[in-house]
Design a binder for these strands. Structure first.
Length: 421
RNA sequence: GUGGGUAUAGCUCAGUUGGUUAGAGCGCAGGAUUGUGAUUCCUGAGGUCAAGGGUUCGACUCCCUUUAUCCACCCCA
């Protein structure tokens, strides 16, 4: 018995309709915002993530699925969606098309982590990336896109937290202020924080250690050290969100774990699905394109965890549009009828009715039970009596109503479809 | 990488201070006289009690190791 790799999940035939439902909504909302799908490879040159995501991040340091291919090249299964899109944007000169470039994707992503509730080694993200727009409106637009999805799905419990971590210019000043604040206190902090002080001081704000949290409480916030441009940008984003009726909390503790973020960062958080409550996280990343070898290009986007989203929807008792069932089951009762079932099924399918018939050589009674379990709405019964008169009995399972109709694809189709609509 | 919980049928779980042939509900398959499905009744299939070792006359039960899984930390979607 070989079982499924740790931290991965099968989506089984009786639950895939949930995924289809969510994927359809997500695609529909992307269309409403004018974003088109981009598909990039599942693996990329390792170098792309080292430069894009940042080599001080946990993702790159200890969580990547990296391997050498048979040509001796170092490859990595994508640990997030944005870097590959940035690479494709540059490589295909998408900046020469009308700007901005508004894209979305649905992709698996891979991180070697210890699985727990809402955290897997392979999970799936819906992501949105707007390249080429530096305006605050673009930030609002992207956040609004995510929010529209949650609205369409009827999810009200997600809390939007936003923050601004500034640009490299104000970050420099902020880091100096933070270091100054921490200088006298760093001895009381955890080992990782000591390490972060030089490499990436911003991440200290995110530490969950009790001792560190105590110290961080009074630490300076990025938002108080923004340069004029960043400050204006942030204020406008807030005003924009308010103008479309979007509730948010400015949370100075929101610091994203990927190095490429600048200015706006945000998260949509659920409190009901365990410790891993971030369903959607994103922000602006004006330096990414340049970091992976392109011309400086502003960009903003987010990633949305589809497994987590589906967990939230399950918790809410969402129906996902209902399980997909066949319209018609054909129940033949004798050998001659079995010969008739196939052409009848073919005819009904051509007209658009989904249709099944017995593949198990079951008795008539067992076929009726089976049709009921499947949830088929109509059963076409063909027995010796019917064949003699060239007719079929059509029974509607939800009402028990049954009638005899002419044994012919067009007639049966007309009769059933008129009753089902 | 660190900590804690759990492991018996496809699923959810019982199983007495260690005792003879390991059970239930659900699900699955078949049936309850001539051709009718959510109910009811009957029957059946399906288990190396996670794996390996130890204690014992005897282990699903006690001890050790391993593995898997879940939850939490870290981190993130």
């Amino acid at each position: 018995m070989i079982n499924i790799p740790k931290g991965t999940k099968d989506v089984l035939p009786f639950e895939s309709y949930k995924w289809h439902y969510v994927e359809n909504i997500v695609r529909e909302v992307a269309r409403l915002f004018g974003a088109c799908e981009i598909r990039t490879p599942t693996f990329e040159h390792t170098e792309l993530f080292l430069r894009g995501v940042g080599d001080t991040t946990d993702i790159v340091n200890k969580e990547m699925y990296t391997f050498e291919d048979k040509g001796g090249r170092s490859m990595t299964l994508k640990p997030e969606g944005t870097a590959g899109v940035a690479r494709a944007f540059i490589e295909n000169s998408l900046f020469n098309r009308p700007q901005p470039t508004k894209m979305y994707y649905i992709t698996p992503v891979f991180r070697y982590e210890r699985p727990q509730a809402g955290r897997l080694r392979e999970h799936h993200q819906f992501g949105v990336e707007f390249f080429g727009a530096d305006s605050w409106q673009a930030d609002v637009e992207v956040i609004s896109l995510a929010k529209t999805i949650f609205d369409k799905l009827g999810v009200k419990e997600l809390q939007l937290n936003i923050n601004s971590i500034g640009c490299p210019k104000c970050r420099k000043e902020y880091n100096a202020a933070l270091k100054e604040y921490l200088a006298s206190k760093i001895d009381g902090m955890c080992a990782t924080c000591k390490d972060r002080l030089d490499k990436n001081p911003l991440r200290i704000l995110d530490c969950k250690e009790e001792g560190c949290k105590e110290i961080i409480k009074d630490a300076p916030n990025t938002i108080d050290y923004l340069c004029d441009e960043c400050k204006t940008h942030h204020d406008n984003v807030c005003k924009g969100l308010t103008s479309i009726g979007l509730d948010y909390t400015v949370n100075p503790r929101i610091v994203r774990g990927l190095d490429y973020y600048t200015r706006t960062v945000f998260e949509f958080i659920s409190t009901s699905i365990g410790a891993q409550g971030t369903v959607c996280g994103g922000g602006r990343y004006n330096n990414l394109v340049e970091q992976v070898g392109g011309k400086p290009t502003s960009a903003v986007g987010f990633g949305m965890g589809l497994e987590r989203l589906i967990i939230v929807l399950d918790k809410l008792g969402h129906t996902f549009g209902g399980e997909v069932v066949s319209d018609v089951y054909i129940a033949p009762m004798c050998d001659e009828a079995r010969q008739l079932a196939m052409p009848l099924a073919k005819s009904l399918r051509e007209k658009g009715l989904s249709c099944e018939y017995d593949l198990m050589d079951r008795s008539f009674k067992a076929q009726m039970k089976y049709a009921d379990k499947l949830g088929c709405r109509a059963v076409v019964i063909i027995g010796e009596d019917e064949i003699k008169e060239c007719r079929a009995s059509v029974k509607f399972m939800y009402s028990g109503e049954q009638e005899s109709v002419s044994l012919d694809g067009d007639t049966i189709y007309e009769y059933i479809s008129s009753k089902l609509s």
